[in-house]
Simulated scan of single mutants.
Amino acid sequence: MSKSILFTGVQPSGFLTIGNYCGTINRWTEFQKKYLCFFCISDLHALTILPKKSKESLNNRILDTLALYLSCGVDPSKSIIFLQSNVYQHTQLHWILSNFSYFGELSRMTQFKYKVNLNQNSPINLSLFSYPILMAADILLYQTNFVPVGLDQKQHLELVGTIARRFNKRYGNIFTIPSIILNNVGFKIMALQNPMKKMSKSDNNLNNSIFLLDSIDSIRIKLYKSLTDSSNPPEVKYDQYNKPGISNLLVILSSLTGKKISDLEIEFNKCTYQYFKKSLLDILLEVILKIQKSYFFFRKDIHYLYDILRLGAENARIHSEKTLCQVQNILNS
């Protein structure tokens, strides 16, 4: 029996954070055992905000992202790793699906509205508006069964299903309707100094995010400066409304250790916040140092990285061409 298909993608727009890791990356090894996985480096999506530096800089970020994929457990002998722009079927299906997508539903995307508000003084690219359609093409091309996402992408995945059903209603069961995989814990890691907003690799305040390639000293400083509260005596308790900072740190620790938050509350009962942060730091450094050791090993072998992308693109084109041909044939019949 063939395996179900899982698709996931990351933009090469900046180094990955511990939020990315806790959200989905820490399950990649598990996913590879259960599914045929397509790991996409979404460089076309990264162009929604035009890079200020040279193309070479984007190429470097692509290789950085690939090396991080490998260091976080992605095995190119078990999964297909590819660069989005190397598989032309993505942009072809994107244009076709744009005819089955409505202006109103795209304008209601909360991520679009958030980024518009964030960049009020800058022109807004059309690609930022139509981003979810390309995302739909990414996923539907491979007849994807499962897509692991963070909570902020859940609305986009629901739109993917809407577009696929709309197409299927007219032309038959062409596309598989993907199911969403959300981590029970860690699906939304918040900013360290402002735990009311999501941790982001593009945050202007670098102290809000811990990156997988941060130095030990930087991680220590960021974690110790993270927001807690003024409870006296200190109380390590999950309460995202009254104790958002401590709740966020509990979620991170739970995601990294696999322990239930309720068990962690008992474990750190009557402990100081400093002791709690030190315990989290020890676990965090153990995870990150292991990733970093593997990352630098892979990153120096550029020829190996390009070989992975070349072979991944060839395999991705074989799989995606089947769906694209089916779509084109039904439209031309």
Results as ranks from 00 to 15, higher is better:
Met1Ile: 14
Met1Asn: 15
Ser2Trp: 05
Ser2His: 06
Ser4Asn: 14
Phe7Asp: 07
Thr17His: 15
Asn20Gly: 07
Tyr21His: 12
Tyr21Ser: 04
Gln32Met: 06
Tyr35Leu: 06
Tyr35Asn: 08
Leu36Ile: 11
Cys40Thr: 02
Asp43Phe: 14
Leu50Ala: 14
Pro51Lys: 11
Lys53Ile: 10
Lys55Asp: 10
Leu58Cys: 03
Asn59Met: 08
Asn60Ile: 04
Arg61Asp: 13
Ile62Ser: 02
Leu63Gln: 06
Thr65Tyr: 00
Leu66Trp: 02
Ile80Gln: 07
Leu83Gln: 08
Ser85Ala: 09
Gln89Glu: 15
Gln92Tyr: 13
Gln92Thr: 09
Leu93Ala: 03
Trp95Gln: 08
Trp95Val: 13
Trp95Lys: 15
Phe103Trp: 12
Gly104Cys: 13
Arg108Asn: 11
Lys115Leu: 10
Asn117Tyr: 00
Asn119Cys: 11
Gln120Asp: 08
Ser122Trp: 06
Asn125Cys: 08
Ser130Phe: 15
Pro132Trp: 01
Pro132Lys: 10
Ala137Met: 06
Ile139Tyr: 01
Leu141Ile: 04
Asn145Asp: 14
Val147Lys: 02
Asp152Trp: 00
Asp152His: 00
Lys154His: 07
His156Gln: 15
Val160Ser: 01
Ala164Val: 02
Arg165Leu: 06
Arg165Met: 10
Phe167His: 07
Asn168Trp: 00
Asn168Gln: 03
Tyr171Glu: 13
Thr176Met: 12
Ser179Tyr: 05
Ser179Leu: 14
Ser179Cys: 08
Ile181Trp: 04
Gly186Thr: 10
Ile189Lys: 02
Ala191Trp: 12
Leu192Asp: 14
Met196Tyr: 05
Ser200Thr: 04
Ser202Asn: 13
Ile210Gly: 10
Leu213Ser: 06
Asp217His: 09
Asp217Phe: 03
Tyr224Thr: 10
Tyr224Trp: 08
Thr228Lys: 04
Ser230Asp: 15
Ser230Asn: 10
Pro233Gln: 06
Val236Gly: 03
Asp239Ala: 09
Gln240Asp: 14
Gln240Ala: 10
Gln240Arg: 12
Asn242His: 05
Asn242Ala: 04
Lys243Arg: 09
Pro244Asn: 04
Pro244Trp: 04
Pro244Thr: 06
Leu253Ser: 12
Leu256Trp: 12
Gly258His: 08
Asp263Asn: 11
Ser279Thr: 03
Asp282Pro: 02
Leu284Arg: 04
Leu285Asp: 00
Lys293Pro: 01
Tyr295Gly: 03
Ile302Tyr: 05
Asp307Ala: 05
Ala313Ser: 15
Glu314Arg: 13
Ser320Val: 01
Thr323Pro: 00
Val327Leu: 02
Asn329Leu: 06
Leu331Trp: 01
Ser333Leu: 06
